[in-house]
Design a protein around this nucleic acid. Sequence first.
DNA 1: CGAGGTCTTGAAGACGATCAACAAACGTGG
DNA 2: CCACGTTTGTTGATCGTCTTCAAGACCTCG
Lengths: 241, 241
Amino acid sequence: MIERLIRKLSLYGPLPPASLDALAAAFDPPRAYDAGQDLVRQHAEPTESIVVLRGLAGRRVVLADGAQQLTAFQVAGDFVDLHGFVLRRLDHSVVALSSVQAAAIRHERLGPLTDRWPELTRALWFLTMIDAAIHRQWLTAVGRQDALARMAHLLCEMWARNEDVGLTERRSYRLPLTQAQLADALCLSTVHVNRTLQALRARGLMNFRSGVVDILDWPRLCDLASFDPTYLQMQVRPPPP
Amino acid sequence: MIERLIRKLSLYGPLPPASLDALAAAFDPPRAYDAGQDLVRQHAEPTESIVVLRGLAGRRVVLADGAQQLTAFQVAGDFVDLHGFVLRRLDHSVVALSSVQAAAIRHERLGPLTDRWPELTRALWFLTMIDAAIHRQWLTAVGRQDALARMAHLLCEMWARNEDVGLTERRSYRLPLTQAQLADALCLSTVHVNRTLQALRARGLMNFRSGVVDILDWPRLCDLASFDPTYLQMQVRPPPP
DNA sequence: CGAGGTCTTGAAGACGATCAACAAACGTGG
DNA sequence: CCACGTTTGTTGATCGTCTTCAAGACCTCG
């Protein structure tokens, strides 16, 4: 069930098989969420943490004036709120962006596992540190790159992360987002998202239609985005030409 | 030596005194860094992690085109590169923004400590999760707030963090940054930083001169910034009127 | 006293936001 | 299968914030 999570954990280093078995056994049965539904609510004090098994989720911060910001995306195999295990109170919601299947592990069960297996703890910690690295990357992207580069960067990152968990097909992958949601993630207006996508299409770099991204020119897309996947702590296999 | 760090760790919850003693004993003797010097270099594979004892440090990402971005500040008591303990390779440098005194702990010594004291591990993890929460906050600030609110937010956050470690004096605190460095942190041009500071001063909200911030109207400054310190996981004592 | 960095000010221009209207796609029920 | 309403996507025009460029003032430290 949580093979993808285990694969990501193993990126940290070899883990005792017994610890992984124990982890896998500690999860509750999967639940299904509809697109738009909250997996976790801002300001809640969570008693469990959730792993995405299928679909796309996102961290959403709602501001006082009603504007919302997506600060991260989560693909299959990602822990969406592992920080809730060590933080008291969540500073953001996690929302299903497509229909999502996810499994929860109660903190009262996760605690003993981390007591027993220090390597497992560090591997979980490692995952949250990758999230933080992604945050830093987004921050510099929003601050220093224009709309075109930012969009390109997001598409590169999501290619890499989907590829990593085997969710790409030839040169395309699913990205079930509306342009408005892209705007929330990229800190742009929907109008400008639309124009930016057109510009990328016009340059023959990619295609995005009905929730599917097609990579047409990976090298030039990466170049435009200044995409360097080191921060994801993974090797990226480029799409076939 | 690391009392401030221990105080922050204890925010997570009560920790075995023996674990804190062991932690304190594991640090190397403090080192001094001049302003501008790197504490840690981007792309390095660190074998130790560093705690700031005195002064101000910042995470700096250098982009391909030479532009740089400060993605976080670190005050006394902050671990500047604890993520280097679980990540292979650092995605950014840490640079001394004033003269800095800092102590390092070698990973070969930190590892066994985390093997032995799971609560300590989680408390360290907790600290890195606060960093991540700050990143999310900066991301939404850069994306959704204008220059004035962003600057105000930064000044509020730095008040709170300095206050937390007892580094404020009446209603002021040291922030040894040039306007150019503020621009790097806030994703603005230096010109606009200058004008923004003038605007805040003209409104009687604060004063910033020669590296010292004076809070003149805390409530209105917070209001302008939509500052809600929950994400810092701390209580904030407002400055005296 | 001079030289470098830092701060300040003005003017022009770019990037993206906002507003408004319309087209296309989608889903639902008749 | 079509009619309809709603959501999503597209386009044009105008406007504002912030950038860029340029120049000068200030300040600190040798």
